[in-house]
């Protein structure tokens, strides 16, 4: 089954005529993702490089879309999220970066009581290897398997997927939740889905300095996940400065350093790798796979 993205995912690309939207629509379609078309207000009814163009997300939904991916420039990205939320899309992936945090506070509040799931903003999206990809994760690096990945980073996620794939260890679903202060889905939201996914045997969590999301995730893994996990934390050597004055330190119950997060994972029995390659080795050890074999 995997999570969030499966064979029934039908995608509307918001901003399909832009440089990034256009490029990645082709990449997603080549990967086998069902692209219903995309939106570009004013160009509805036309075609863009073979993809149908709609004026609004509601029209794309009427044509069969159940998910959205947003490549709209930052000035229009908040409206794009609201449009997909009002259209009740099942999954909304926002790739756009640079969105003000207070705008995201309002967007996240508007999701309450609705079934839509928002991944991002400032994220690489979601890929279920061998099935479909929604976002910008390069499909070539992933192979189907039974390891779930959730990450606050973009390119670092690719690095870990790549390292697993090199060992022949496949992935069930990889989710990049984005590094912004106010994300749609959190580590916790994604871990809940992995807990209930019969196709995921182990979860890799990729965190970074700042905040306390990793500590919260570590507690959840220890108490609720019911599956083994492996973690990576970026920023062990980063200079201080990612903290937000006193209030930030107080909220996170500390400084949000890599050392605190690593200690939280270790206390929860979650091994922490020092490099993407080592994370892959730890996964192999946890799954008790002999060297040179995988679950793919």
């Amino acid at each position: 089954m995997a999570i969030l993205v499966n064979k029934d995912t039908k995608v509307c690309v918001q901003g399909i005529t832009g440089r990034d939207g256009s490029f990645h629509s082709h990449r997603m379609a080549e990967y086998g993702t069902h692209i219903v078309g995309g939106t570009r207000p004013g160009k509805g009814g036309a075609e863009h490089e073979g993809f149908p163009v709609f004026d609004t997300v509601a029209e794309a939904k009427a044509a069969g879309a159940n998910s959205s991916v947003i490549y709209v420039p930052v000035a229009g990205a908040v409206d794009a999220m609201y449009e997909s939320i009002e259209a009740s899309m099942d999954l909304i992936v926002c790739v756009t970066e640079g969105i003000p945090a207070n705008d995201m506070v309002r967007v996240v509040a508007s999701l309450r009581g609705r079934a839509s799931r928002l991944v991002g903003p400032n994220c690489p999206g979601v890929i279920t290897p061998g099935v479909a990809s929604v976002g910008i994760i390069p499909g070539r690096i992933a192979i189907p398997g039974r390891v779930g990945i959730v990450s606050r980073s973009g390119t670092l996620t690719y690095e870990v997927i790549h390292a697993l794939t090199r060992l022949g260890i496949g992935q069930s679903t990889c989710v990049g939740i984005g590094g912004d202060q106010v994300p749609g889905m959190s580590f916790l939201d994604v871990l809940e889905l992995f807990r209930d996914d019969p196709d995921t045997d182990l979860v890799v969590l990729i965190g970074e300095i700042g905040g306390s999301d990793e500590q919260i995730a570590a507690r959840y893994i220890a108490q609720e996940l019911g599956k083994p996990a492996v973690a990576f934390v970026a920023g062990q050597t980063a200079p201080p400065g990612k903290r937000m004055g006193h209030a930030g330190a107080i909220i996170s119950g500390g400084e949000g350093t890599a050392a605190e997060k690593i200690a939280a994972f270790q206390a929860a029995g979650v091994p922490v790798g020092e490099s993407p390659g080592q994370v892959a080795e730890l996964v192999r050890a946890r799954l008790r796979l002999p060297e040179g074999s995988g679950t793919a």
Binding site: S151, R152, S153, G154, T155, L156, T157, E159, G179, I206, E208, I209, F232, A234, G235, Q236, T237, A238, E274, S275, P276
Partner: peptide
Amino acid sequence: IVNGAGLAMATMDMVKHAGGRPANF
């Protein structure tokens, strides 16, 4: 020179682990 903040930090971490010193993020 790296793309992505997470990968940039991880690259710095690995430079340090390998005995080098990053000049920048």
